[in-house]
Protein backbone atom coordinates (compact mmCIF):
# COMPACT_ATOMS: atom_id res chain seq x y z
CA UNK A 1 0.00 0.00 0.00
CA UNK A 2 1.66 3.18 -1.19
CA UNK A 3 1.68 6.38 0.83
CA UNK A 4 1.05 9.69 -0.90
CA UNK A 5 3.48 12.38 0.08
CA UNK A 6 4.44 15.84 -1.01
CA UNK A 7 8.01 17.07 -1.02
CA UNK A 8 9.42 20.49 -1.70
CA UNK A 9 12.62 19.77 -3.58
CA UNK A 10 14.93 22.64 -4.40
CA UNK A 11 12.03 25.07 -4.37
CA UNK A 12 9.41 23.16 -6.30
CA UNK A 13 6.81 20.88 -4.82
CA UNK A 14 6.04 17.42 -6.14
CA UNK A 15 3.85 14.53 -5.10
CA UNK A 16 5.01 10.93 -4.88
CA UNK A 17 3.38 7.62 -4.06
CA UNK A 18 6.00 5.82 -1.97
CA UNK A 19 6.29 2.48 -0.26
CA UNK A 20 5.77 2.75 3.50
CA UNK A 21 9.35 1.68 4.28
CA UNK A 22 10.93 3.59 1.39
CA UNK A 23 13.88 5.81 2.26
CA UNK A 24 14.09 9.38 1.14
CA UNK A 25 17.29 8.65 -0.78
CA UNK A 26 15.41 6.17 -2.98
CA UNK A 27 12.54 8.55 -3.57
CA UNK A 28 14.97 11.24 -4.65
CA UNK A 29 17.04 9.00 -6.88
CA UNK A 30 14.51 6.58 -8.31
CA UNK A 31 11.27 8.59 -8.33
CA UNK A 32 12.37 12.20 -8.62
CA UNK A 33 15.29 11.29 -10.89
CA UNK A 34 17.66 13.39 -8.81
CA UNK A 35 20.69 11.14 -8.83
CA UNK A 36 23.02 13.78 -7.46
CA UNK A 37 22.20 12.46 -4.00
CA UNK A 38 24.39 9.38 -3.64
CA UNK A 39 24.06 6.23 -1.62
CA UNK A 40 27.11 4.64 -0.03
CA UNK A 41 26.08 2.55 2.97
CA UNK A 42 22.36 2.93 3.71
CA UNK A 43 23.03 2.98 7.45
CA UNK A 44 23.84 6.65 8.01
CA UNK A 45 27.59 6.14 8.26
CA UNK A 46 29.02 7.56 5.04
CA UNK A 47 27.09 10.80 4.53
CA UNK A 48 26.97 10.49 0.72
CA UNK A 49 23.16 10.79 0.81
CA UNK A 50 23.12 13.91 2.99
CA UNK A 51 20.47 16.48 2.13
CA UNK A 52 19.21 19.54 3.95
CA UNK A 53 15.68 18.88 5.18
CA UNK A 54 13.80 21.79 6.70
CA UNK A 55 17.08 23.54 7.33
CA UNK A 56 18.85 20.56 8.89
CA UNK A 57 21.47 18.28 7.43
CA UNK A 58 20.22 14.68 7.50
CA UNK A 59 21.29 11.37 5.97
CA UNK A 60 18.45 10.71 3.53
CA UNK A 61 18.97 6.96 3.88
CA UNK A 62 17.71 7.18 7.47
CA UNK A 63 14.60 9.19 6.68
CA UNK A 64 11.45 7.36 5.71
CA UNK A 65 9.91 9.18 2.79
CA UNK A 66 6.54 8.89 4.49
CA UNK A 67 7.99 10.74 7.48
CA UNK A 68 9.30 13.48 5.22
CA UNK A 69 5.83 14.33 3.92
CA UNK A 70 5.59 18.10 3.59
CA UNK A 71 9.30 18.73 4.11
CA UNK A 72 11.42 21.18 2.16
CA UNK A 73 14.59 19.66 0.80
CA UNK A 74 17.79 21.04 -0.62
CA UNK A 75 19.78 18.55 -2.67
CA UNK A 76 23.00 19.10 -4.57
CA UNK A 77 21.01 19.91 -7.69
CA UNK A 78 19.60 22.97 -5.93
CA UNK A 79 22.86 24.48 -4.73
CA UNK A 80 23.83 26.30 -7.91
CA UNK A 81 21.52 29.17 -8.83
CA UNK A 82 20.58 29.65 -12.50
CA UNK A 83 23.61 27.71 -13.60
CA UNK A 84 25.98 29.76 -11.44
CA UNK A 85 28.01 27.75 -8.99
CA UNK A 86 27.74 28.79 -5.36
CA UNK A 87 30.86 30.16 -3.73
CA UNK A 88 31.34 26.86 -1.92
CA UNK A 89 31.02 24.90 -5.15
CA UNK A 90 33.54 27.24 -6.75
CA UNK A 91 35.89 26.71 -3.84
CA UNK A 92 35.59 22.92 -4.17
CA UNK A 93 36.51 23.24 -7.85
CA UNK A 94 39.36 25.71 -7.28
CA UNK A 95 40.90 23.93 -4.30
CA UNK A 96 40.83 20.50 -5.93
CA UNK A 97 38.49 19.17 -3.24
CA UNK A 98 37.02 16.68 -5.69
CA UNK A 99 38.36 13.42 -6.99
CA UNK A 100 35.91 10.66 -7.80
CA UNK A 101 33.21 13.06 -6.69
CA UNK A 102 30.92 10.50 -5.16
CA UNK A 103 31.13 12.07 -1.69
CA UNK A 104 31.02 15.59 -3.10
CA UNK A 105 27.24 16.23 -3.01
CA UNK A 106 27.05 15.20 0.65
CA UNK A 107 30.21 17.12 1.50
CA UNK A 108 28.88 20.27 -0.14
CA UNK A 109 25.65 20.12 1.79
CA UNK A 110 27.51 19.43 5.03
CA UNK A 111 29.62 22.48 4.26
CA UNK A 112 26.59 24.62 3.48
CA UNK A 113 24.92 23.48 6.68
CA UNK A 114 28.00 24.35 8.73
CA UNK A 115 28.20 27.78 7.15
CA UNK A 116 24.54 28.36 7.90
CA UNK A 117 25.34 27.81 11.58
CA UNK A 118 28.77 29.35 12.02
CA UNK A 119 30.24 32.42 10.37
CA UNK A 120 33.89 31.69 10.94
CA UNK A 121 34.28 28.03 11.83
CA UNK A 122 37.79 26.96 12.86
CA UNK A 123 39.47 23.87 11.44
CA UNK A 124 38.21 21.68 14.29
CA UNK A 125 34.65 22.79 13.67
CA UNK A 126 34.98 22.16 9.96
CA UNK A 127 36.37 18.69 10.58
CA UNK A 128 33.56 17.94 12.99
CA UNK A 129 31.00 19.22 10.49
CA UNK A 130 32.16 16.73 7.84
CA UNK A 131 33.03 13.88 10.19
CA UNK A 132 29.88 12.10 9.07
CA UNK A 133 30.89 12.31 5.42
CA UNK A 134 33.44 9.72 4.42
CA UNK A 135 35.77 10.44 1.54
CA UNK A 136 38.06 7.72 0.23
CA UNK A 137 39.93 9.77 -2.37
CA UNK A 138 40.98 13.17 -1.10
CA UNK A 139 42.14 12.70 2.47
CA UNK A 140 39.81 15.61 3.38
CA UNK A 141 42.58 18.22 3.35
CA UNK A 142 41.37 20.12 0.33
CA UNK A 143 37.73 19.81 1.36
CA UNK A 144 38.53 21.45 4.69
CA UNK A 145 40.45 24.16 2.85
CA UNK A 146 37.55 24.83 0.46
CA UNK A 147 35.10 25.24 3.33
CA UNK A 148 37.50 27.42 5.30
CA UNK A 149 38.12 29.71 2.35
CA UNK A 150 34.42 30.05 1.65
CA UNK A 151 33.72 30.92 5.27
CA UNK A 152 36.40 33.56 5.20
CA UNK A 153 35.10 35.03 1.98
CA UNK A 154 31.53 35.13 3.21
CA UNK A 155 32.41 36.78 6.51
CA UNK A 156 34.51 39.39 4.69
CA UNK A 157 31.58 40.17 2.43
CA UNK A 158 29.34 40.36 5.46
CA UNK A 159 31.63 42.57 7.52
CA UNK A 160 32.24 44.97 4.65
CA UNK A 161 28.48 45.21 4.17
CA UNK A 162 28.07 45.96 7.85
CA UNK A 163 30.93 48.48 7.69
CA UNK A 164 28.96 50.46 5.18
Amino acid sequence: MRVDIELGINGSRSRFAVEPDERLVSTLRDRAGLTGTKQGCKIGECGACSVIMDGKLVPSCLVLSASADGADLLTVEGVAQDGNLSDLQQAFVAEGAIQCGYCTPGMLLAGEYLLSRYQRPDTAQIKEAIAGNLCRCTGYTKIVAAIRKTAKKRSLVKSSAQGR
Binding site: T35, T37, E77
Partner: peptide
Protein backbone atom coordinates in the same frame (compact mmCIF):
# COMPACT_ATOMS: atom_id res chain seq x y z
CA UNK B 1 49.76 24.62 -13.65
CA UNK B 2 47.12 24.44 -10.92
CA UNK B 3 44.23 24.01 -13.31
CA UNK B 4 40.69 22.99 -12.47
CA UNK B 5 39.78 19.39 -13.03
CA UNK B 6 37.92 18.87 -16.28
CA UNK B 7 35.18 16.99 -14.46
CA UNK B 8 34.93 19.20 -11.37
CA UNK B 9 32.00 21.39 -12.42
CA UNK B 10 29.75 18.48 -13.30
CA UNK B 11 30.70 16.80 -10.05
CA UNK B 12 29.83 19.73 -7.77
CA UNK B 13 26.44 20.19 -9.36
CA UNK B 14 25.45 16.54 -9.20
CA UNK B 15 25.23 16.31 -13.01
CA UNK B 16 27.87 13.62 -13.41
CA UNK B 17 26.27 10.30 -14.16
CA UNK B 18 27.93 7.42 -12.36
CA UNK B 19 27.24 3.76 -13.10
CA UNK B 20 24.80 3.55 -10.17
CA UNK B 21 22.88 6.55 -11.55
CA UNK B 22 22.11 4.99 -14.90
CA UNK B 23 18.69 3.74 -15.74
Amino acid sequence: KRVERKDARAKVTGETIYPSDRS
